[in-house]
Amino acid sequence: MQLPPMDYLAPADLSEALAAKARLGDEAVWLAGGTDLLPRAKQGIAAARTVISLKHLAPELSGVRVQDGRITIGALTTLKAAGEHPELSRRLPGLRDALASIGAETLQQSVGTVGGNLCADTRCLYLNQSPAWRAGLAPCFKLGGEVCHPGGASADRCRSVCQSDGAVMLMALQAEAQVASPQGQRTVALDELYTGKGETPLALQADELLTGVSLELGDDPLGTAYHKLALRGALDYPLLSAAAALWLRDGVVSRVRVALGAVYAAPLVLIDAVAPLVGQEPTPERLAQAARKAGGHAEPFLVDNVGADLQWRKDMVRVVVARALEQAVQRAKGGA
Protein backbone atom coordinates (compact mmCIF):
# COMPACT_ATOMS: atom_id res chain seq x y z
CA MET A 1 0.00 0.00 0.00
CA GLN A 2 1.18 3.46 -0.79
CA LEU A 3 1.47 6.52 1.35
CA PRO A 4 -0.79 9.27 0.01
CA PRO A 5 0.97 12.49 -0.95
CA MET A 6 1.45 14.72 2.10
CA ASP A 7 3.40 17.86 2.84
CA TYR A 8 6.24 17.43 5.27
CA LEU A 9 7.64 19.89 7.79
CA ALA A 10 10.48 19.33 10.20
CA PRO A 11 10.62 22.33 12.55
CA ALA A 12 13.91 23.03 14.28
CA ASP A 13 12.61 23.42 17.81
CA LEU A 14 9.58 23.37 20.05
CA SER A 15 8.41 26.92 19.47
CA GLU A 16 8.71 26.58 15.70
CA ALA A 17 6.82 23.32 15.89
CA LEU A 18 4.03 24.79 17.97
CA ALA A 19 3.75 27.79 15.67
CA ALA A 20 3.46 25.56 12.61
CA LYS A 21 0.80 23.42 14.21
CA ALA A 22 -1.15 26.47 15.38
CA ARG A 23 -1.13 27.74 11.81
CA LEU A 24 -2.22 24.47 10.20
CA GLY A 25 -4.54 23.19 12.93
CA ASP A 26 -6.38 19.97 12.05
CA GLU A 27 -4.83 19.91 8.60
CA ALA A 28 -1.57 18.79 10.15
CA VAL A 29 -0.55 15.89 12.38
CA TRP A 30 2.48 15.28 14.52
CA LEU A 31 4.89 12.62 13.35
CA ALA A 32 7.00 10.98 16.06
CA GLY A 33 8.16 7.43 15.28
CA GLY A 34 5.39 7.07 12.74
CA THR A 35 4.69 3.44 13.64
CA ASP A 36 1.04 4.18 14.34
CA LEU A 37 0.55 7.15 12.03
CA LEU A 38 2.09 5.84 8.83
CA PRO A 39 0.14 2.56 8.66
CA ARG A 40 -3.03 4.63 9.19
CA ALA A 41 -1.98 7.11 6.51
CA LYS A 42 -1.56 4.21 4.09
CA GLN A 43 -5.01 3.05 5.04
CA GLY A 44 -6.32 6.47 4.14
CA ILE A 45 -7.61 7.22 7.65
CA ALA A 46 -4.99 9.62 8.94
CA ALA A 47 -6.75 12.56 7.24
CA ALA A 48 -3.88 15.00 7.20
CA ARG A 49 -2.42 17.11 4.45
CA THR A 50 0.77 17.88 6.34
CA VAL A 51 2.90 15.91 8.72
CA ILE A 52 5.04 17.79 11.16
CA SER A 53 8.03 15.70 12.07
CA LEU A 54 9.21 15.97 15.64
CA LYS A 55 12.67 14.58 14.88
CA HIS A 56 14.58 17.77 15.60
CA LEU A 57 12.83 18.05 18.96
CA ALA A 58 14.20 14.73 20.16
CA PRO A 59 17.08 16.24 22.15
CA GLU A 60 14.62 18.53 23.94
CA LEU A 61 11.88 16.03 24.51
CA SER A 62 13.49 12.71 25.20
CA GLY A 63 14.92 11.08 28.25
CA VAL A 64 13.83 9.75 31.60
CA ARG A 65 14.26 11.89 34.71
CA VAL A 66 13.81 10.79 38.31
CA GLN A 67 13.61 13.68 40.73
CA ASP A 68 11.84 14.41 44.00
CA GLY A 69 9.80 11.23 43.91
CA ARG A 70 8.61 11.83 40.36
CA ILE A 71 9.50 10.09 37.14
CA THR A 72 9.21 12.15 33.99
CA ILE A 73 9.49 10.65 30.54
CA GLY A 74 9.99 12.90 27.53
CA ALA A 75 7.39 12.34 24.83
CA LEU A 76 10.01 11.52 22.21
CA THR A 77 11.81 8.93 24.32
CA THR A 78 11.83 5.72 22.30
CA LEU A 79 10.06 2.72 23.80
CA LYS A 80 13.36 0.91 24.06
CA ALA A 81 15.19 3.78 25.70
CA ALA A 82 12.42 4.23 28.24
CA GLY A 83 11.99 0.53 28.98
CA GLU A 84 15.70 -0.04 29.37
CA HIS A 85 16.31 3.00 31.55
CA PRO A 86 17.82 1.43 34.69
CA GLU A 87 16.00 3.58 37.19
CA LEU A 88 12.65 3.29 35.43
CA SER A 89 12.91 -0.43 34.98
CA ARG A 90 13.95 -0.92 38.62
CA ARG A 91 11.21 1.24 40.05
CA LEU A 92 8.48 0.53 37.54
CA PRO A 93 8.91 -3.02 36.23
CA GLY A 94 5.26 -3.00 35.19
CA LEU A 95 5.88 -0.07 32.87
CA ARG A 96 9.04 -1.67 31.57
CA ASP A 97 7.08 -4.83 30.75
CA ALA A 98 4.26 -2.89 29.12
CA LEU A 99 6.63 -0.93 26.90
CA ALA A 100 8.66 -4.04 26.06
CA SER A 101 5.50 -5.80 24.90
CA ILE A 102 4.84 -3.26 22.18
CA GLY A 103 5.38 -4.34 18.58
CA ALA A 104 8.84 -5.75 17.99
CA GLU A 105 12.37 -4.74 18.78
CA THR A 106 13.30 -4.31 15.15
CA LEU A 107 10.94 -1.41 14.47
CA GLN A 108 8.37 -0.26 16.99
CA GLN A 109 10.74 -0.52 19.96
CA SER A 110 13.53 1.41 18.33
CA VAL A 111 11.64 4.21 16.60
CA GLY A 112 8.26 4.20 18.37
CA THR A 113 7.99 6.76 21.14
CA VAL A 114 6.27 6.94 24.50
CA GLY A 115 4.36 10.05 23.42
CA GLY A 116 3.26 8.36 20.21
CA ASN A 117 2.12 5.38 22.18
CA LEU A 118 0.01 7.56 24.47
CA CYS A 119 -1.46 9.42 21.50
CA ALA A 120 -1.86 6.38 19.21
CA ASP A 121 -5.30 6.23 17.70
CA THR A 122 -7.96 3.73 18.70
CA ARG A 123 -8.24 0.68 16.48
CA CYS A 124 -11.03 -1.08 14.63
CA LEU A 125 -11.13 -4.24 12.51
CA TYR A 126 -13.33 -2.45 9.96
CA LEU A 127 -11.46 0.83 9.86
CA ASN A 128 -7.81 -0.26 9.99
CA GLN A 129 -8.12 -1.71 6.50
CA SER A 130 -7.24 -0.52 3.03
CA PRO A 131 -9.54 1.88 1.19
CA ALA A 132 -10.28 -0.94 -1.26
CA TRP A 133 -11.36 -3.15 1.63
CA ARG A 134 -13.67 -0.45 2.97
CA ALA A 135 -15.16 0.29 -0.47
CA GLY A 136 -18.87 -0.34 -0.42
CA LEU A 137 -19.15 0.18 3.35
CA ALA A 138 -20.97 3.31 4.47
CA PRO A 139 -18.70 5.83 6.22
CA CYS A 140 -18.62 5.11 9.94
CA PHE A 141 -18.88 7.50 12.89
CA LYS A 142 -15.13 7.93 13.05
CA LEU A 143 -15.08 9.01 9.40
CA GLY A 144 -17.99 11.40 9.92
CA GLY A 145 -20.71 8.94 9.00
CA GLU A 146 -23.69 7.46 10.81
CA VAL A 147 -22.87 3.82 11.40
CA CYS A 148 -20.49 1.60 13.33
CA HIS A 149 -19.73 -1.61 11.46
CA PRO A 150 -18.44 -3.73 14.34
CA GLY A 151 -21.15 -2.31 16.57
CA GLY A 152 -23.95 -3.32 14.22
CA ALA A 153 -27.39 -1.77 13.85
CA SER A 154 -27.80 -0.84 17.51
CA ALA A 155 -24.52 1.09 17.84
CA ASP A 156 -24.98 4.82 18.24
CA ARG A 157 -21.29 5.69 18.43
CA CYS A 158 -17.82 4.56 17.42
CA ARG A 159 -16.79 1.24 18.92
CA SER A 160 -13.06 1.45 18.27
CA VAL A 161 -10.65 0.26 20.93
CA CYS A 162 -7.63 1.69 22.72
CA GLN A 163 -4.92 -0.95 22.41
CA SER A 164 -1.99 1.15 23.58
CA ASP A 165 0.00 -0.83 26.13
CA GLY A 166 1.84 2.13 27.59
CA ALA A 167 -1.33 4.11 28.14
CA VAL A 168 -2.88 1.38 30.28
CA MET A 169 0.08 1.10 32.62
CA LEU A 170 0.56 4.84 32.88
CA MET A 171 -3.13 5.24 33.58
CA ALA A 172 -2.84 2.78 36.46
CA LEU A 173 0.05 4.88 37.72
CA GLN A 174 -2.16 7.95 37.61
CA ALA A 175 0.29 9.71 35.36
CA GLU A 176 -0.13 13.23 34.05
CA ALA A 177 0.57 14.42 30.56
CA GLN A 178 2.50 17.61 29.96
CA VAL A 179 1.05 19.49 27.10
CA ALA A 180 2.47 22.51 25.29
CA SER A 181 0.82 25.01 22.98
CA PRO A 182 1.71 28.53 21.83
CA GLN A 183 -0.26 29.67 24.90
CA GLY A 184 2.09 27.80 27.23
CA GLN A 185 2.22 24.58 29.21
CA ARG A 186 -0.56 22.70 30.93
CA THR A 187 -0.81 19.43 32.77
CA VAL A 188 -3.58 16.96 32.08
CA ALA A 189 -4.27 13.85 34.08
CA LEU A 190 -4.39 10.80 31.78
CA ASP A 191 -7.86 10.22 33.21
CA GLU A 192 -8.80 13.42 31.41
CA LEU A 193 -6.62 12.97 28.34
CA TYR A 194 -8.64 9.95 27.22
CA THR A 195 -12.20 10.88 26.35
CA GLY A 196 -13.57 7.36 25.99
CA LYS A 197 -15.03 8.42 22.65
CA GLY A 198 -13.81 6.38 19.72
CA GLU A 199 -14.40 9.25 17.30
CA THR A 200 -12.06 11.60 19.17
CA PRO A 201 -10.19 9.57 21.75
CA LEU A 202 -7.82 12.32 22.91
CA ALA A 203 -8.67 15.58 24.64
CA LEU A 204 -5.91 17.53 22.94
CA GLN A 205 -6.50 20.77 21.08
CA ALA A 206 -5.37 21.07 17.48
CA ASP A 207 -2.45 23.30 18.51
CA GLU A 208 -1.24 21.14 21.37
CA LEU A 209 1.71 18.82 21.66
CA LEU A 210 2.36 16.25 24.33
CA THR A 211 5.84 16.99 25.64
CA GLY A 212 6.09 14.39 28.33
CA VAL A 213 4.42 12.29 30.94
CA SER A 214 5.18 12.19 34.63
CA LEU A 215 4.04 10.42 37.72
CA GLU A 216 4.38 10.44 41.46
CA LEU A 217 6.23 7.40 42.80
CA GLY A 218 4.85 7.97 46.28
CA ASP A 219 6.51 7.34 49.60
CA ASP A 220 5.26 3.84 50.20
CA PRO A 221 6.78 0.81 48.51
CA LEU A 222 5.23 0.54 45.06
CA GLY A 223 4.60 -2.60 43.04
CA THR A 224 3.62 -2.43 39.38
CA ALA A 225 2.64 -5.18 36.99
CA TYR A 226 1.31 -5.49 33.49
CA HIS A 227 -0.41 -8.59 32.18
CA LYS A 228 -1.15 -8.76 28.47
CA LEU A 229 -2.99 -11.43 26.50
CA ALA A 230 -1.94 -11.80 22.87
CA LEU A 231 -1.58 -14.69 20.45
CA ARG A 232 2.01 -13.96 19.46
CA GLY A 233 5.19 -13.31 21.37
CA ALA A 234 5.71 -10.01 19.52
CA LEU A 235 4.05 -7.78 16.94
CA ASP A 236 0.73 -8.21 18.59
CA TYR A 237 -1.64 -5.70 20.10
CA PRO A 238 -3.31 -6.82 23.32
CA LEU A 239 -6.56 -8.77 23.14
CA LEU A 240 -6.96 -7.71 26.75
CA SER A 241 -4.54 -6.38 29.32
CA ALA A 242 -4.45 -5.32 32.94
CA ALA A 243 -2.10 -2.92 34.69
CA ALA A 244 -1.83 -2.71 38.44
CA ALA A 245 -0.06 -0.19 40.64
CA LEU A 246 -0.19 -0.96 44.32
CA TRP A 247 1.40 0.78 47.31
CA LEU A 248 1.93 -1.00 50.61
CA ARG A 249 2.42 0.53 54.04
CA ASP A 250 3.28 -1.86 56.85
CA GLY A 251 1.88 -4.75 54.87
CA VAL A 252 -1.37 -2.96 54.24
CA VAL A 253 -2.51 -1.52 50.91
CA SER A 254 -2.29 2.24 51.12
CA ARG A 255 -3.24 2.92 47.52
CA VAL A 256 -4.08 0.84 44.46
CA ARG A 257 -5.06 1.51 40.86
CA VAL A 258 -5.95 -0.99 38.18
CA ALA A 259 -6.54 -0.22 34.52
CA LEU A 260 -7.62 -2.44 31.65
CA GLY A 261 -6.55 -2.23 28.03
CA ALA A 262 -8.23 -3.33 24.80
CA VAL A 263 -11.64 -2.93 26.40
CA TYR A 264 -13.06 0.20 24.78
CA ALA A 265 -11.92 3.58 23.43
CA ALA A 266 -9.82 4.43 26.52
CA PRO A 267 -7.93 2.52 29.18
CA LEU A 268 -10.59 1.51 31.69
CA VAL A 269 -9.76 2.37 35.29
CA LEU A 270 -11.46 0.12 37.82
CA ILE A 271 -12.05 2.16 40.93
CA ASP A 272 -14.81 0.41 42.85
CA ALA A 273 -13.49 -3.08 42.30
CA VAL A 274 -10.19 -2.39 44.04
CA ALA A 275 -11.27 0.25 46.55
CA PRO A 276 -12.00 -2.36 49.26
CA LEU A 277 -8.35 -3.41 49.17
CA VAL A 278 -7.21 -0.10 50.67
CA GLY A 279 -6.45 -0.39 54.35
CA GLN A 280 -6.35 -4.17 54.09
CA GLU A 281 -3.69 -6.76 53.88
CA PRO A 282 -3.60 -7.96 50.24
CA THR A 283 -4.48 -11.58 50.92
CA PRO A 284 -5.06 -13.91 47.96
CA GLU A 285 -8.76 -14.02 48.83
CA ARG A 286 -9.09 -10.24 48.78
CA LEU A 287 -7.20 -9.96 45.51
CA ALA A 288 -9.39 -12.65 44.00
CA GLN A 289 -12.46 -10.84 45.23
CA ALA A 290 -11.30 -7.60 43.62
CA ALA A 291 -10.53 -9.42 40.37
CA ARG A 292 -14.00 -10.98 40.33
CA LYS A 293 -15.58 -7.58 40.83
CA ALA A 294 -13.39 -6.15 38.09
CA GLY A 295 -14.80 -8.74 35.72
CA GLY A 296 -18.33 -7.63 36.44
CA HIS A 297 -17.51 -3.94 36.16
CA ALA A 298 -15.64 -4.28 32.89
CA GLU A 299 -18.09 -6.51 31.12
CA PRO A 300 -20.51 -3.85 29.85
CA PHE A 301 -17.60 -1.82 28.44
CA LEU A 302 -15.99 -4.63 26.44
CA VAL A 303 -16.21 -4.01 22.72
CA ASP A 304 -16.12 -6.97 20.32
CA ASN A 305 -13.60 -5.50 17.92
CA VAL A 306 -10.13 -6.94 18.51
CA GLY A 307 -10.25 -10.29 16.70
CA ALA A 308 -10.80 -12.59 19.66
CA ASP A 309 -13.85 -14.27 21.11
CA LEU A 310 -15.82 -11.75 23.21
CA GLN A 311 -16.99 -14.23 25.84
CA TRP A 312 -13.43 -15.39 26.36
CA ARG A 313 -12.28 -11.79 26.80
CA LYS A 314 -15.05 -11.19 29.33
CA ASP A 315 -13.95 -14.26 31.24
CA MET A 316 -10.33 -13.17 31.10
CA VAL A 317 -10.83 -9.83 32.87
CA ARG A 318 -10.86 -11.58 36.22
CA VAL A 319 -7.76 -13.58 35.34
CA VAL A 320 -5.61 -10.72 34.08
CA VAL A 321 -6.59 -8.45 36.94
CA ALA A 322 -5.83 -11.17 39.49
CA ARG A 323 -2.44 -11.83 37.93
CA ALA A 324 -1.51 -8.18 37.69
CA LEU A 325 -2.55 -7.57 41.29
CA GLU A 326 -0.71 -10.61 42.61
CA GLN A 327 2.48 -9.62 40.83
CA ALA A 328 2.16 -6.00 41.95
CA VAL A 329 1.84 -7.18 45.55
CA GLN A 330 4.90 -9.37 45.17
CA ARG A 331 6.86 -6.48 43.76
CA ALA A 332 5.67 -4.06 46.41
CA LYS A 333 6.94 -6.53 48.95
CA GLY A 334 10.31 -6.44 47.24
CA GLY A 335 9.99 -9.49 45.01
CA ALA A 336 10.81 -9.56 41.32
Binding site: L125, Q129, W133, L231, R232, G233
Partner: peptide, 27 residues
Protein backbone atom coordinates in the same frame (compact mmCIF):
# COMPACT_ATOMS: atom_id res chain seq x y z
CA UNK B 1 -3.23 -19.48 16.01
CA UNK B 2 -4.24 -19.02 12.44
CA UNK B 3 -7.79 -18.53 11.24
CA UNK B 4 -9.69 -16.12 9.09
CA UNK B 5 -12.42 -14.06 10.69
CA UNK B 6 -15.37 -12.69 8.80
CA UNK B 7 -17.86 -9.89 9.01
CA UNK B 8 -21.43 -10.92 8.37
CA UNK B 9 -21.23 -9.58 4.78
CA UNK B 10 -18.86 -11.73 4.56
CA UNK B 11 -15.69 -9.71 4.33
CA UNK B 12 -12.36 -11.09 5.52
CA UNK B 13 -11.55 -9.18 8.71
CA UNK B 14 -7.91 -10.21 8.88
CA UNK B 15 -6.26 -10.24 5.48
CA UNK B 16 -2.94 -8.84 6.75
CA UNK B 17 0.00 -10.03 8.84
CA UNK B 18 -0.96 -7.94 11.83
CA UNK B 19 -4.38 -9.46 12.41
CA UNK B 20 -3.80 -12.92 10.91
CA UNK B 21 -1.59 -14.62 13.45
CA UNK B 22 1.26 -16.18 11.52
CA UNK B 23 3.72 -17.26 14.21
CA UNK B 24 7.05 -15.51 14.66
CA UNK B 25 10.49 -16.90 15.40
CA UNK B 26 9.94 -16.16 19.08
CA UNK B 27 6.86 -18.41 19.08
Amino acid sequence: REEHRWSDTPRCLNPTFLEYKVPLACD
